[in-house]
Design a protein around this nucleic acid. Sequence first.
DNA 1: TACAACGATAAAACAACCTTATCATTTTAT
DNA 2: ATAAAATGATAAGGTTGTTTTATCGTTGTA
Lengths: 291, 291
Amino acid sequence: MLPELKIQPLRYVLAIVDEGGFHAAARHLHRTQPALSMAVRELEQRLGEPIFEKGGKAMLTPFGTYCLPRFRELIIQHDRLSRDLVTQVEKRAGHIDMAAVPSVASRLMPRLLSNFIQHYPDLKVSLHDGTADFVSRLVSAGEVDLGLTSLWQVDEELDFQPLMRDAIGVVCRDDHPFAGREALDWQELQGQALIRNGTSRLLEGTEAELLLAQSDFYISNMISLTAMLVAGIGITTLPRLAFPEEYERLRFVPLATPHVERELGLLKPRRRSLSPAAQAMEAFIILELGE
Amino acid sequence: MLPELKIQPLRYVLAIVDEGGFHAAARHLHRTQPALSMAVRELEQRLGEPIFEKGGKAMLTPFGTYCLPRFRELIIQHDRLSRDLVTQVEKRAGHIDMAAVPSVASRLMPRLLSNFIQHYPDLKVSLHDGTADFVSRLVSAGEVDLGLTSLWQVDEELDFQPLMRDAIGVVCRDDHPFAGREALDWQELQGQALIRNGTSRLLEGTEAELLLAQSDFYISNMISLTAMLVAGIGITTLPRLAFPEEYERLRFVPLATPHVERELGLLKPRRRSLSPAAQAMEAFIILELGE
DNA sequence: TACAACGATAAAACAACCTTATCATTTTAT
DNA sequence: ATAAAATGATAAGGTTGTTTTATCGTTGTA
């Protein structure tokens, strides 16, 4: 029904007009003159109306004059699209949605993102933070491109690439007997007022698991948790990266036995692929954090 | 530099998404499935980034999701252009600039244009009127598409197609001795107060040419001319078509010897071609006026 | 009058596109 | 669980389009 216009012949027409002739245009386009002649003839037949006057010179017909600005417009739109897509592919534009557990978001991401935008100044990044469970569900649902988290549970849909290990330790106030210790054995914690938090389940499956049962508090909010620790109400366990160093009165003492670690890494969808921008972010993170 | 996107593969991508698979899309497009596979692969290679996920189903990558609405937009613009141009070629849109001598403009054009727009309801027509000289210069300069006029002078750039002959006659008031006569000989006009007008030069080159020398007035404006005739100040010569029939007191008497005619016809540029709309008008005029 | 430049054309080389036939996977139905 | 059906990918071959080389006819110019 509608004739299918190819972009290239339209370009030829523009060049012929701009350069003032078939020969000049052919030179400019790195084509031979007959190529243009035939392309124009093809286009004219397709439209059912001549674009150039037949006699001698390369002069537009009234119909050709009508076509010219419209051809130019379509070409401009084509080129804009083409350029836009290439820009995306070349990671010179685009945006990345990320999610990270709070410790990573607050301790690792600031420097990482700052470095990232120096390499990719035109990429936009959004960072959400939440529990490991929340992060993996965001990635799974495709609501973010990438997640930085500890492995929550094996999910067939998700691909987890380990990047760093983060050892669990005890956090207590600076006047607690543990403060200043180099390391601790889990048995020393028995009888202590242990406050559980979101990371406590990392102890599950270890000898120290027994400690969780004797704990009276579970506090998920980090601000509340630190307030209780500062108040001397109890102690807790945290991965080192989650230890809030900005609190002067709190101390972190590594748990030597059992040596428990969480594995922080990059979470991405397994069956889906990443946007070019997210690919850049992925490569950058692996380069920066994994060595 | 920029990859050249062809419209058709973009259409394929849309169809694959809309129909939910390569096979369904192929059926819908009257192509085979490998044709789509290969076209998509070509497009992906050109852009340097996959559009569909590799595994199994026809699912868009994030990049493909980004592309989709943009592909659709370019296709819509292509189709709009294509449809627009076809509409022009098929004379279902467009506009025609015309010029005619006043007699034609006022006596022939109203009915003609009225008939024309019944056949081509979406074409727009502009009609200018002026002297034969003016008309031919408008056509020559390309400021109008077509002219309806008497042949002014042979112009290599213009093509004149005769359509009708228009006999010269004498115009006088109803109480003039000539009124009521069937025909007149030029010699009878000698001694009469003859008012020349824009059409008087039609007598040049005939025996009656001598009359022009004895004329004291030249009036180009038709309203002024008729006012003078109605006032009985003199008589004039006019082609029959230019004779203002709406003046009850004026009479037209054909000039029998010499029998002078002007030839009215269609003027168009010779080396330039006409817009599709103007072509329709040309054909229509020849059909209506030339028989 | 001859020359140079222009666009049109014919034939052959080349590239793009589409089809047929077939494969490896995955999904659906029994 | 297994067979059947459907999915997209791939290879080879044919058709169609596009480009080039070579040449022609015309037009404008020296």
